[in-house]
Amino acid sequence: MDGLEITDVSSCDLSGRQDHRVPGEPMLRVRGLTRIYGRECPDCVPRTGPEAGSNICPGCGSVVACAGVSFDLYAGEILGVVGESGSGKSTLVQCLYFDSAVTAGEAYLRNYREGAVNILGSSAQEQRHIRHHLMGMVYQKPHQGLRLDCTAGGNIAEKLLAAEFFHVGRIRERASELLLRTEVPLERMDHLPRHFSGGMQQRVQIAKALANSPPLVFLDEVTTGLDVSVQARVLDLIRHLHRELGLAMVVVSHDLGVIRLLTDCTLVMKTGRVVEAGLTDQILGDPQHPYTQLLVSSLL
């Protein structure tokens, strides 16, 4: 656990024990997040959604990827986002990680200026700072989060340098510790991820995302496309790291099994809207919305 002291995030619980009391204030508050691709017209939001059965505006043809998405994420909690392809799950995390601009909406991160600033409206420079210091992202496709032609160790160093951690000797130490933790053989540290298997690339990506122990991590379909043994290993790894580091996570997946195993609470999305939100076992055990009932009844 020694290497973890380099984190600059004081709220991170490194003892591996969770706080039993009800957390007072959410660490991430999202309100009315909306993202529309296209020209936009006043009809875009009212004429799309689950009732309309589409997220394409009949007036102007714009795609309403997300509309009015609101939720609270508490420290140490894992939030799942489920829904069919095209329901807006990935757009949601891309907006929160600043990969994509929002059309409307606000988000407040407790670790950034005491949660007083809408981070979605911050300058690009501030957003880079937040992203490097307080967030981590694991993409579905490893090449989105990794430089495949830069060594595994170099990828991790990149994230640490971005988080303003400049002690070169300790960077290498930290990289080997992370690779060890994510079960990547240390002798591969100076190899290029381009020559790794998909599962190993994904584990390097996780190591990179967690390099500076950010308090908030986004995972977008991280196990999709992996074979089942590697999938179980990656899930196990994520659970371990979550418990040890006390991170808050947003896990996007269309796989209800992954959601069941990893998450505390879940948002169900359809055509860009949240149709149901609640405790994960309640969503899966007693779904309320017709779409969620369909989703759960289709579970193998």
Partner: peptide, 24 residues
């Protein structure tokens, strides 16, 4: 939900009819 999660961690246990656990 957060209150329920905290209670489940600290003082309420539940034995379901079937065990569901993470592989490995």
């Amino acid at each position: 939900a957060q209150t329920i999660l905290a209670l489940r961690r600290s003082e309420i246990g539940y034995v379901s009819q079937f065990l569901r656990v993470v592989p490995r």
